[in-house]
Structure formats: structure tokens, C-alpha cells
Amino acid sequence: MKKVYATASEALDGLLHDGMLIAAGGFGLCGIPELLIDALVESGVNNLTVASNNAGVDDFGLGKLLVTRQIKKMMSSYVGENAEFMRQFLSGELQLEFNPQGTLAERMRAGGAGIPGFYTQTGVGTQIAEGKEVKTFKGKDYILEEGIFADLSIVKAWKADDTGNLVFRKTARNFNPPAAMCGKVCVAEVEEIVPRGSIDPDRIHLPGIYVHRLIQGEHEKRIEQRTIRKREEA
């Protein structure tokens, strides 16, 4: 069992094909698999459908794959920070399937847990419910949402051991665990690969069973909205 690869491109070797469905972790620019996204840009793989809460910004994260027109369709909850995304969507060049954020997270989690569908109250009576089965439980309406089964998951964690056990840091965890779970193959990038046994088993956030390939690398970790308070407010 060798999971550790030298580079992002090597870790993706043999896993890519045009038209594939990729689930990506991250929220905004926080906890995004930036090295694997760069490797996808280099690979030239095309016609992608990407399930990810956001689509990065124009020159960072998934925004890079939009600029190169490698993405055919996004499954997202929020695209407000990305001008190129808006332009491609409004001109009809890009398909966009809006998913409520919790529905997107649960669709990934469900897919990873072998659950093809679940009922939720989220979106009942809105355009999200159009075309979806409605079922009533105890007098309340719920809509059927389907699990996401991705061809590939790309995620970012803080630390890993060589067996793929992952530890995340603060709010950079976000969509990474459910995104990792729902892929047939999951590639993770981390800031540090530590020796086996050096992570307390009780502190592992995602067990290595979900992680098939692994790289370590330098991350830019760009901040989207730098907000601070003045010292005298303390």
C-alpha cells in the first residue's frame, strides 16, 4: 500500500478522463486543494463537472479551471465572488446546478456512505424543488435529493500519515471530509506528512480508508476577506 506521491501531477496520473465528475473540498478559498487544481489545469482534462461549494476566484482555486474553460458544469451553493463564473453562467457557456449548501454537503456525505437519496425540508416551495419528488412525513413536506458519487475527489488537509489518515485545521475542514468520502478515488494534498503513529488515533478526523493517494506541498492559503479589529477595541 503506497499512497504517497511526489507531485500533484503524479498523484493524478491515470485517474483523469474528459467528462468526469470531480468533488472538491474547500469553502471559499479556505481549505481548497490548490495544488491538485493546478495539476488539473496542466493536465488539460476537459468537460468537467465539479461539485464544490464555491468556484474560487478568477486567478486562484477552481477559478483557474473556469478561465481555461475546462469546466462544463458546476454544482455549487454560492458563486458570488467570481466574476468569470458569473460571466460564463449568464452567457450560457457554463452550466450551473445550484445546491443549498447543506444539501450539497449531505449529498456528498450520503454518496460516500452508500445512500443514493435522502429527504430534506431544505428548498421545499422554492425553485430548488422543481422536478423533485415530494414526500410527506408527519404532515410536513420533504424533497428527495440524490447522493453524489464522484469519479474523483480532491481534498486538502493539514496533516496526514502515510496511510492517509487525515487531520484538518480549524475551519479549513469544511467540505473536505464529505467530498473525500464521495469519490471512487480520493487524492489528498497536505501541508505535512508525518510518521505513522505520530498522530493520536483519537485525533484523526478522516480515516485513511477514504484516501487513496497523497501529496505534501507548499500552500499559498490566500485570504479572501482580510478583516481585523483595532487594538484599542480590546
Binding site: S77, Q101, G102
Partner: peptide
């Protein structure tokens, strides 16, 4: 076109 983010889940839950 910004998206609903978590608002639909929040108001439902």
C-alpha cells in the same frame, strides 16, 4: 446570481 449558500437550509431548519 450569487447563490443561496446556507440560507435555504437555515430557514428550513
Amino acid at each position: 446570481v450569487k447563490g443561496m449558500g446556507g440560507a435555504m437550509d437555515l430557514v428550513a431548519g
